[in-house]
Design a protein around this nucleic acid. Structure first.
Lengths: 233, 233
DNA sequence: GGGTTTTGTTAACCACGTGTGAAACGTTGG
DNA sequence: CCAACGTTTCACACGTGGTTAACAAAACCC
């Protein structure tokens, strides 16, 4: 049994490739870590999964690649992230962008086992490719969002922001957190940027649903209808 | 945020338990690895997940425990398996018995991260950090507070003040202390400010629960139901 | 390369949370 | 019972923080 995956690591291609092959995994090595290289190397029957190396590199670059893979027309299988120990905390709130991770130093047979594990579980697991919250439906594959059945025409950043908020309903995020988690860089300058994007989102949600994004004064924003019952905090 | 899990390891209980607690996971240590011990230690609101050690032990024993946990009336959350490197192959075709695994040597923070990852992927929201005191529940993620199930609509300072008081129940704070701890060290303002905020809090707590914030004449304020002896401070 | 869409910035405007003073109220002690 | 002190309550002014719109810059698309 051989599994075709894309392996996004910038170096040591030869030895790693060999090591994977003995575990029954055939990797296409995309050293650049860019989407177009990933696509160029893709076998005709597609990838079974992806292994993305974040260790020793800017974490957000890896996250962006995950996002791109998830949003592709052609679905890629489970995404496995390679991280350094100090990057463990960065994984929080990004659980939806990858399916599993390995902490360095890396063991090829562990990675292969995780790949197989996720592939097998993919059958049973109801991997929700969409988010449903309070009339909002976001299809993570087609990159579309509808509110109460009406299609919302969202731009890239709008979609990412809404998705982040909607995947963590009721939870309040500061503008700084949103900037670093959604935009992906340590913010330089305007926290007002978030406000403006929230405003645009509310406009596109329509007057009736604008309240789905709530302002928590002096704290930030959160997604979710008003809490009617308090016992399920 | 604390997550209650059952940790099935046969030895070294003390240090491991401590190590887990700093990652926000509270383990019940079932050293025998038997189901009845797991059940005996279970908290009233159940386990959020299970960590089962197979490393250095017969693999099938661990598998049997997984099976028993899965077949229980009361569902246990994600099951994480601790394995030795040479046990990796044993995992094949048993993917449905566990949700994730870690290869030794074990890193507690990695295990905790995997727990959180699986909990989030399963859509479990019960991992939110919260304060519960005398009918008051404060969710630190959603910035919501409820008293006896009723949602309190608190402003920022009200929330901060109540949180500070409720995290230190029964303890009396002077107005000066509250000003410096809640408002900030360099805050310079009248002590009457505290009184007014306490008043607003009591109003929002409702007549029935207003007494949760008690006045200690010529000292300050404290949180907590009365009829408590003073010797347990 | 010109036009269009998307994204980020700036500033005016506005709402509401917050702090303050003063008066009313309660409690303690002489 | 009164005086002195501490706490509660209220109304109001100020300023922080959020919204909004208009504009500028950047990216994108023929």
């Amino acid at each position: 049994m051989t599994i075709d995956v894309v392996l996004c690591v910038p170096s040591c291609e030869g030895p790693i490739k060999k090591a994977f092959e003995v575990t029954g995994v055939t990797p296409a090595v995309a050293a650049s870590g860019r989407l177009n290289e990933v696509t160029a190397l893709e076998p005709t029957d597609g990838y079974a999964g992806a292994v993305i190396n974040a260790a020793g590199f800017p974490f957000n670059d890896a996250m962006n690649l995950c996002r791109q893979l998830r949003q592709r027309d052609r679905a890629v299988g489970p995404i496995i992230l390679l991280v350094d120990h100090y990057q463990l905390d960065d994984l929080t709130f990004r659980e939806d962008l990858f399916d599993d991770f390995v902490v360095g130093p890396f063991d090829v047979s562990e990675i292969a086992t995780r790949l197989r594990h996720r592939l097998r579980r993919a059958g049973n697991e109801s991997v929700a490719p969409r988010i449903e919250q309070g009339g909002l439906v976001m299809n993570l594959e087609t990159y579309q969002a509808t509110i109460a059945g009406r299609v919302m025409d969202l731009t890239y950043m709008e979609y990412e922001l809404l998705r982040f908020l909607a995947t963590n309903p009721q939870r309040v995020f500061t503008r700084e957190t949103l900037l670093s988690r959604v935009w992906g860089y340590e913010y330089y300058g305007g926290a007002r940027t978030v406000d403006v994007h929230v405003r645009r989102l509310r406009a596109k949600l329509g007057e009736e649903h604008a309240h789905l994004i709530q302002t928590v004064r002096s704290v930030g924003y959160k997604f979710g209808a008003d809490a009617e019952r308090g016992d399920d905090l």
